[in-house]
Structures are given as structure tokens and as C-alpha cells.
Simulated scan of single mutants.
Amino acid sequence: MKKIILVAVLLLTSMYGFSQESSIQEKAVKLIKMTSGQQFEIMTEPVVKMIPEENREAFKKELLTSMEDLYAQIAEVYVENFSEAELDEILAFYHTPVGEKMVAITPELTKKGMEIGQQWGMQLQPMIAKYSK
């Protein structure tokens, strides 16, 4: 009887630990989707446009599936660096008016930032050439 109780306790403990890890993982994925999902969509737009029109919908479907895997992998990094309580606080911020605004305008900020970065990179060409001799 003691063995059965011990096994039951071990199973319940491991299940509790798994559910906690699942919960924190889910919160990390939610945060990534909330803060970076639109950015990933912007970054993949040029790739989608390279696909022939007749194959785009199938490609987008497969791309979205692969992005779920990407989110899960990135979430592991978040889980390593934030506690569940910290993720709760970050998520709470993104549900405030300022946080919602941040999420809403981040794609535009990213797009403009990339354009500025490209222009800056072009300006570096003469400097790179000067020091590459």
C-alpha cells in the first residue's frame, strides 16, 4: 500500500510540475505572439511575395505552422530568463492602454526602424571602403 501511495504522490508531483511548466511556457508564447507576432509577419512578407500566386495560400499555412514552432523555441529562452510572476507582470503591462498602444504601433516602428537601418548601412559603405584598404 505504501508503494502505491508513493507512486501516486510522485505522479501527482510530476504532473503538477509539468502543468506549471506548461503554464509558464504558454504565457511566454502568448507574450511573444503579442509583442513580436506582427513583426514576424512583416519580416516574412517579402518571402511570401516570392512564392507564385497559386502556391501562396498553401505556403502561408505551412509558414504559420512553422512559426508556432519558432514561438515555442523562443519561449524556452523567455522561460529561462523570466519567472512566471515576471511574465504575468509583463503581460499585465501589455493589457494597459500604454502597453496596447505599444503592441499596436510596434509593427510600424519596426518597419520604419528597418528603413532607417538600411539607410544607415548604405552610409557606412564609404567608411567601410576607406578602412578596408
Score class of each variant (00 low, 15 high):
residue 1 M to G: 14
residue 2 K to A: 03
residue 6 L to W: 00
residue 8 A to G: 07
residue 8 A to Q: 01
residue 8 A to R: 01
residue 11 L to W: 05
residue 12 L to T: 06
residue 12 L to I: 12
residue 13 T to A: 14
residue 14 S to V: 13
residue 15 M to Q: 08
residue 16 Y to I: 11
residue 17 G to Q: 09
residue 20 Q to H: 08
residue 21 E to Y: 15
residue 25 Q to P: 04
residue 25 Q to N: 13
residue 27 K to W: 01
residue 28 A to M: 06
residue 28 A to E: 03
residue 28 A to T: 08
residue 29 V to Q: 12
residue 30 K to N: 04
residue 31 L to K: 06
residue 33 K to E: 15
residue 33 K to M: 10
residue 35 T to A: 08
residue 38 Q to T: 09
residue 39 Q to N: 10
residue 39 Q to F: 01
residue 40 F to S: 04
residue 40 F to V: 14
residue 41 E to D: 15
residue 42 I to R: 04
residue 43 M to D: 11
residue 43 M to E: 12
residue 45 E to Q: 14
residue 47 V to H: 05
residue 51 I to D: 13
residue 51 I to K: 13
residue 52 P to V: 03
residue 55 N to L: 11
residue 57 E to C: 02
residue 57 E to W: 05
residue 59 F to Y: 14
residue 59 F to S: 06
residue 63 L to C: 06
residue 64 L to K: 12
residue 64 L to T: 12
residue 64 L to E: 14
residue 66 S to A: 09
residue 67 M to A: 07
residue 68 E to V: 14
residue 69 D to E: 09
residue 69 D to H: 10
residue 70 L to G: 05
residue 71 Y to N: 09
residue 72 A to H: 07
residue 72 A to K: 14
residue 73 Q to T: 08
residue 79 V to Q: 08
residue 81 N to T: 06
residue 84 E to F: 05
residue 85 A to R: 07
residue 86 E to F: 08
residue 86 E to K: 12
residue 88 D to L: 09
residue 88 D to Y: 08
residue 88 D to Q: 09
residue 89 E to V: 02
residue 91 L to M: 13
residue 94 Y to F: 15
residue 95 H to P: 03
residue 96 T to N: 10
residue 97 P to N: 10
residue 97 P to F: 11
residue 97 P to S: 07
residue 97 P to H: 11
residue 99 G to E: 04
residue 100 E to D: 15
residue 101 K to V: 01
residue 101 K to E: 09
residue 103 V to L: 08
residue 103 V to C: 05
residue 105 I to N: 10
residue 105 I to E: 15
residue 105 I to G: 08
residue 105 I to M: 13
residue 109 L to H: 07
residue 109 L to W: 07
residue 111 K to N: 03
residue 113 G to D: 05
residue 114 M to R: 05
residue 114 M to G: 03
residue 116 I to E: 00
residue 117 G to F: 01
residue 118 Q to L: 07
residue 126 P to G: 06
residue 127 M to H: 13
residue 128 I to C: 11
residue 129 A to Y: 11
residue 129 A to E: 15
residue 129 A to D: 15
residue 129 A to S: 14
residue 131 Y to S: 08
residue 132 S to Q: 14
residue 133 K to I: 09
